[in-house]
Design a protein around this nucleic acid. Structure first.
Lengths: 156, 156
DNA sequence: ATAATACTTGACAGAAATACTCGGCTATTA
DNA sequence: TAATAGCCGAGTATTTCTGTCAAGTATTAT
């Protein structure tokens, strides 16, 4: 349940590649395609959306590619996903584009709303920078408890 | 993004109706259908799944219907959704039924894993009982800040 | 017994969303 | 001016979702 579309996933991975290049220079779609194993065509579509939102900028011509518009610590995962997939909307009721007909009579309304807020809070708190510095996290033992686990993972 | 299927939503609403009847007696599919405005056919499918998982029991014949197998405080929303939609799996990588080919090379793996755990913790902490006693919550003012907001809504 | 009630099961079908591909165009620079 | 690299919109195959339908089984009131 609650699966993220590939578009969102690829988008974050693409942003990671752009962020990783950092000050080295623009990253081409082809490079991202090879490193992340996603087709050039599909990436064009994804990166185009992200460019229009102002989160990245493109440089045309030879030596061109994509660069971040801001520092990686100022770009949240939430922002990337929101641009590609719209706002978090557990139910159509909670989708600002659709609206709810029953609101008050729907006993589960608040439940889904809370869950959505919980998720957004998590995604807002995670930045591209966290992804960059988090490479080491990959080697952390399966069982949580020790080591840094990223932020925003507080429970009830 | 991250929408829950109607199956899961209807499932929770159906469970709510069964829980609400409580000790009064079994609730028929027809009653749930009318109160929650979901077709009988579709509910049959949903309730059958929930019955097989042992979360509810059916009583056949006239005067029959469905009853909870345990107290509403012992049935979490997570359990209901898991039966109907499978485990939380933000990406196919994290779906136990599919598995991940890249695990270590996938920089976003831990990110999605943390998000998934965060969501599960939330859903695990919410029970049917919370839904029952939460009717009053519906009238809480739109802006959060005051009043009880349910549990598990802690931020980073 | 038997009729009425109610759950049980599996197949199937239309709609919608997803996950891409394709072809041609525009801008930049060596 | 030619090569590079992004820009753009339409189109399509696939999958998933969201349900419907029909025939069957079990139980109980009368």
């Amino acid at each position: 349940m609650l699966r993220l579309s590939t578009k969102g996933q690829y988008g974050v991975r693409a942003m990671y590649e752009i962020a990783k290049a950092g000050s080295i220079g623009p990253v081409t779609i082809k490079q991202i395609s090879e490193k992340q194993d996603v087709s050039v065509s599909y990436l064009e579509q994804i990166l185009n959306t992200l460019r229009k939102s102002g989160i990245i900028q493109s440089v045309k011509g030879p030596g061109g590619g994509y660069v971040l518009s801001r520092g990686p610590e100022k770009i949240s995962i939430a922002e990337i996903l929101r641009e590609l997939e719209g706002p978090v909307a557990i139910t159509s009721c909670l989708d600002p584009a659709e609206g709810c007909i029953r609101v008050d009579s729907c006993v589960t309304h608040l439940l889904w709303k809370s869950l959505g807020e919980n998720i957004e809070r998590f995604l807002d708190s995670m930045s591209l920078k966290d992804l960059l510095t988090g490479d080491q996290l990959m080697t952390i033992p399966k069982k949580p408890g020790k080591g840094r686990q990223g932020k925003g993972i507080s429970a009830a």
